[in-house]
Lab assay of single mutants.
Amino acid sequence: SKWSPSQVVDWMKGLDDCLQQYIKNFEREKISGDQLLRITHQELEDLGVSRIGHQELILEAVD
């Protein structure tokens, strides 16, 4: 995926409302499409996504 960080942010805006709070962290870390495809629970935790349910929603959406 050749998504830029801004495309990742646009994609996140289409996800569940409960995930919108994390967008600024993804933006700050400039998460690209390639990074998103390989993202782990630990990396999500580092991005402030501490709730497992929220991590799962992001990982499922990526899949």
Rank of each mutant, 00 (worst) to 15 (best):
S32P: 04
Y22F: 02
W3P: 03
E29Y: 11
V62L: 08
L57C: 06
E56Y: 07
Q21A: 11
D10G: 11
D10C: 09
K30A: 12
I58Y: 00
G48P: 03
S50C: 12
D17Y: 09
L37G: 10
R28L: 10
S32R: 10
L44N: 01
E56G: 08
Q35M: 10
Q55N: 00
D34R: 12
V9K: 07
L36D: 01
L57T: 06
V9R: 08
W3A: 04
K30D: 09
E27Q: 11
N25Y: 13
Y22C: 02
R28H: 11
Q35Y: 07
I31R: 01
I23P: 04
W11Y: 06
D16K: 04
I39Q: 04
L47S: 02
Q7D: 12
K2V: 11
S6R: 13
D10R: 10
E45H: 13
S6A: 15
D46L: 14
Y22T: 04
I39A: 06
I58T: 03
C18K: 08
D63Q: 13
E27A: 12
D63T: 13
L47G: 01
L36I: 07
F26L: 03
W11D: 04
S4V: 05
L36H: 00
L47R: 03
T40R: 08
I31L: 08
K30Q: 13
E27W: 07
E27Y: 07
G33Q: 05
L44C: 02
I31Q: 01
W11K: 05
D17M: 08
G48N: 04
G53Y: 10
I31F: 05
W11S: 02
E60H: 11
E45F: 13
H54S: 02
R51V: 15
I23K: 07
W3F: 05
Q55L: 00
D34K: 13
P5Q: 07
R38L: 07
I39T: 06
V62P: 02
H41R: 15
R51H: 15
V9W: 01
M12T: 01
I58A: 02
K13Q: 09
W11P: 01
L15N: 05
S4N: 14
Y22E: 03
I39Y: 04
T40L: 00
D46E: 14
S32I: 05
L19M: 09
T40N: 09
I58R: 02
E43M: 10
S32T: 15
S1A: 09
L44S: 02
L47Y: 03
V49K: 00
D17L: 06
D17V: 07
D63C: 14
D46W: 09
L15C: 05
R28Q: 13
K2Y: 14
K2L: 13
E56V: 10
D46P: 02
H41K: 15
I58G: 00
K13I: 06
L37E: 09
V8W: 00
Q7P: 04
R51P: 14
Q35V: 09
R51W: 11
T40D: 07
I31Y: 00
V8S: 03
R38F: 06
D16F: 05
G14Y: 00
S50D: 10
G33R: 04
G14F: 00
Y22P: 03
D63N: 14
G14L: 05
G14A: 06
G14S: 14
E43Y: 06
L15V: 06
Y22M: 00
G14M: 06
H41M: 11
T40I: 01
F26I: 07
K30P: 06
W3S: 05
S32W: 07
G53P: 14
E43T: 10
E27L: 09
K30S: 12
L19V: 11
E29L: 09
N25M: 14
V9Q: 09
C18A: 10
R38H: 13
D16E: 08
Q21K: 09
